[in-house]
Design a protein around this nucleic acid. Sequence first.
DNA 1: TTATTTTTTTAGATTTGTCTAAATTTAAAA
DNA 2: TTTTAAATTTAGACAAATCTAAAAAAATAA
Lengths: 217, 217
Amino acid sequence: MQSFTEENYLKIIYHLSLNNDHAVLTNAIAEKMQTKPASVTDMIKKLADKELVDYKKYQGVKLTPKGKLSAVNIVRKHRLWEVFLVDKLNFKWDEVHDIAEELEHINSAELIERLDEFLSFPKNDPHGDPIPDRNGKFDHMAVVKLNKLKPADAGLIMGVSEHSSPFLKHLEKLGLTLGKHISIIEVTDFDGSIELLLEDKKISVSREVAKHILIKI
Amino acid sequence: MQSFTEENYLKIIYHLSLNNDHAVLTNAIAEKMQTKPASVTDMIKKLADKELVDYKKYQGVKLTPKGKLSAVNIVRKHRLWEVFLVDKLNFKWDEVHDIAEELEHINSAELIERLDEFLSFPKNDPHGDPIPDRNGKFDHMAVVKLNKLKPADAGLIMGVSEHSSPFLKHLEKLGLTLGKHISIIEVTDFDGSIELLLEDKKISVSREVAKHILIKI
DNA sequence: TTATTTTTTTAGATTTGTCTAAATTTAAAA
DNA sequence: TTTTAAATTTAGACAAATCTAAAAAAATAA
Ligand SMILES: [Mn+2]
Ligand SMILES: [Mn+2]
Ligand SMILES: [Mn+2]
Ligand SMILES: [Mn+2]
C-alpha cells in the first residue's frame, strides 16, 4: 500500500507525462507538488525502489506499468468523487477539486465500484475529463483547443484544461459550460481574442481563456 | 488542524470516557489504538499542549471542551458516512466501519453539511448510534441491555454496543435487526441464555450476545 | 508498613517526509 | 571549447509518530 504522499507524487508524474513521452523532470514535479527539488529526488528514489517509476540520475522519471496503473486508479477515484459531489451533493464544478483531492486516497475497491454504480457509470467528470474504468482504460477525446479554431469553425464544449476556481467561475459567468455549442465569428489579430456565437448569443473571450477550453468539432 | 492520528486518539478517548467520568487511562488508550503505552504518553503530551486534553502525570486524561467538540465532530462524520454507505451504496451494516474509519477524516465542513442534507438529516447510524448535530448535540437514547430484561418484558431493538463484523452478521442471521420487536419468554438460570419472541418467531440468544443488544421498552 | 506487581513515564532509536546548503552534472552561451 | 548558468543530487538536519528497554510512580498484597 502507498502513502498519501506517494499517491500524490504518482498522480502528478502521470499528469506531467500525458502530453509528451519524455521522462518527467525533477523540477517540474517539485513545482506541482509545491515542494523542493531535493525532496522530489528523495521520493523518486523511494518510488524507484518500489518499482513504480524508472529512474536514471539527472534524466528524470517514467512510470512503470505498475506505477501507471496505480496513478490511473487514483485519477479514477478523484473523478468519480467529483461526479458525486456535483451530481448528488450539488456542489459547483469549481468547488470540488480540493475535496476530491482528499477523497481520492480512501482505500476501498468495493467502495469505488459501488460509487461508480450509484452514479450510473459516468464516462466523464464535471470538467469533461474521462473517467478510467477499473482496469485503467478510457477513451481519449478527440478535442481541439478553442484558440486553435478559425472563423466559421463550430463545435461543442467538451472540457477544460485548467481547473482553478477563478477560471471555472469565469466560464460559468460567460455561460461557457460543458455541452454548449459554439461557432467562431472572428479572431482578433493583435491579441488573439475570439468573438464567437455561444448557442445564439454573441460573446468574446480572451486568448488566455480560449487556450483552456476543449472543443469537439 | 489535527492529523489523522490525533483525531483517532481524540475519538478513542471520547468513547472511553462515555460511560464513566473518571479520567481515561494510558493503557486503555493503548489497547484501543493497538499501540504501546509509551506511544500513548507521547501523544497525550502533544494533545495536552494543544489544549485538547487535561493531563496530570500518572492520572490519565480528560477531554477539554475543545477536545470534546473535536471528537464529537469526528463521530458525527463517521456516522453520517456509515449511513451513506448503507442507505445509498447498499453496503451491509457489518461492512461499513473500516471505510467510515477513513472517511471520517475528510476535512470539509461544507461536505458534511451537504451529506447530512442528502441523507435527509438522519438521527441514527446503521447501528442505532445517535448522530450529533453540527454543534455536537444529540439525544441520549433511553435503552436497556437485553440481558437485563426479565420474562414478560418487551421492547424494540434500538442499537448494538458491539460493531464487529462477526457479531453483526450473527444478529442478521437471527433476524435481530434494528426496529424489530422482541419479548422475553424465559431466562435460563445456569448460562443466562434468553429465549424470546422476535416478532412472532421463537429464538434463543446467548448471554454474551444479549449483552450487546440495546432495547427500548 | 514493607514488598511485590502493575501502570506509566523517560531515554534513546527508527522511519517517513521534509528542508537548507553545498556539491555535482548537464545544458547553454560565449 | 571553455565559461557560465541551470538543473539535479547529496549531505546533514529536523519534526512527527512510533518502538524497545529501563526507570519511576502508584496500586495491591503480604
Ligand atoms: Mn491528493
Ligand atoms: Mn476534474
Ligand atoms: Mn479513523
Ligand atoms: Mn456505527
